[in-house]
Simulated scan of single mutants.
Amino acid sequence: MTQVKLANNQWGYISAVIDEASNEVVSLNVSNHANKQQLATTLSNLQATIPKESMPILHSDQGWQY
Rank of each mutant, 00 (worst) to 15 (best):
T2W: 00
Q3Y: 09
L6G: 02
L6E: 08
L6P: 02
A7N: 08
N8D: 10
N8P: 01
N9M: 05
Q10I: 04
Q10G: 06
Y13N: 06
Y13Q: 01
I14Q: 05
A16N: 07
A16G: 08
V17I: 14
I18M: 15
I18L: 14
D19Q: 09
E20Q: 15
A21D: 12
A21Y: 11
N23Q: 14
N23G: 07
E24R: 06
E24Y: 00
V25R: 10
V25D: 07
S27R: 02
L28G: 08
N29I: 06
S31M: 09
S31D: 07
H33P: 07
H33L: 15
A34F: 06
K36E: 08
K36N: 09
Q37D: 12
Q38K: 06
L39V: 06
L39G: 02
A40P: 03
A40T: 13
A40C: 14
T41P: 02
T41N: 13
L43W: 01
L43N: 01
S44L: 10
T49K: 13
I50L: 12
P51L: 14
K52S: 13
E53C: 11
S54L: 12
M55S: 14
I57H: 06
I57T: 05
H59I: 09
S60R: 04
S60E: 05
D61R: 06
G63W: 11
W64R: 05
W64V: 04
W64D: 01
W64Q: 03
Y66A: 02
